[in-house]
Each structure stands twice: as structure tokens, then as C-alpha cells.
Computed example of a mutant assay.
Amino acid sequence: MLKVIAACGNGMGSSQIIKMKIEKVFKKLGVQVSIHHSSIGEAKTQASGYDVVFCSEALKKNFARAEEGGTIVVGLKNLLSEQEIETKIKELVIDKK
């Protein structure tokens, strides 16, 4: 089971929306995941304990250290696009595992 965290600027609405969207896509793809959502500050300190981080493209640089440690960081241009999420999961998560 993959451990996933969805992060946004303050950990409220956007991260919850990302969580719901990625949960739906992982389910569609038949991948079991455990998903947490939080603020960028909290996620930054916890990211190395997760397999995958989802955030907006603009926040991706905050996870450089976790990425160096092997955490997959997925930056999204459109947080609401299930198609973008599915494409990135296939390219960055499924193909790498």
C-alpha cells in the first residue's frame, strides 16, 4: 500500500480536494493507497515518510529534500483535473514502482 500526502498552502480546502481527486483515480487504477492531507509546512516535514507527495506545481520545490530521498513528488497544474492526475500517476508513480 502506497502512503500518499496531498499538500496545499494552508492545509484546508485545496489539499482536501486533491485528496478526494487522487483517491478516486487510484481506486480507478486499482492501486491501494493511504492518503493524508495537510498544509505545505506540515507536509514538508513529513514528506520523507511518504511514498508520494501531491501538490500544486508552484509548491513542488518545497519537497526537493524528500525527492532526493526517494519520495515521488507530483506537481499538478490543475488541481481539479482527474485526467492530469491519472496521467501523472501512471507516468510518475506506477511506472517507477
Rank of each mutant, 00 (worst) to 15 (best):
G13N: 08
K19P: 01
S38C: 12
I72E: 06
T71E: 02
A43Q: 07
G70W: 02
G30V: 06
S15E: 04
L80M: 15
T71N: 07
K44H: 10
V53R: 06
V53K: 07
A64D: 15
G11L: 04
E23F: 02
I94D: 05
G30Q: 10
F54K: 07
N62G: 01
S15A: 03
E86C: 03
Y50F: 15
M1E: 10
C8G: 04
K61A: 15
E82A: 05
N10W: 07
I72R: 12
G9Q: 08
K24T: 11
L76Q: 03
F26P: 04
I22K: 12
A47M: 07
N10I: 09
A6E: 03
I5M: 14
Q32L: 05
I89G: 06
T87A: 15
S15R: 09
G70Y: 02
K3Y: 13
A6F: 06
Q32G: 11
L80C: 04
G69F: 08
I17M: 14
D51Q: 08
E82G: 13
K90Y: 00
V93Q: 14
V73Q: 07
A58P: 00
S15C: 05
L2S: 07
S56H: 11
G75H: 02
T87N: 13
S48K: 13
G41I: 05
N78I: 02
H36Y: 09
I35A: 06
M1H: 03
H37W: 03
K60N: 10
G75L: 00
E42W: 01
K28T: 11
I40G: 01
V4A: 11
E57C: 02
M12F: 13
S14C: 02
A47W: 05
E91D: 14
T87W: 01
G49M: 02
K97W: 15
V25R: 00
E84Y: 05
V31T: 11
K28W: 11
G11K: 06
Q16T: 13
I94G: 08
G69H: 09
G11V: 09
L92S: 14
A6K: 03
I35Y: 06
Y50M: 07
D51L: 04
L59V: 05
E57L: 06
I35P: 02
I5W: 02
K61C: 06
N10E: 13
Y50V: 03
G49W: 02
L92P: 01
G69S: 13
H37D: 15
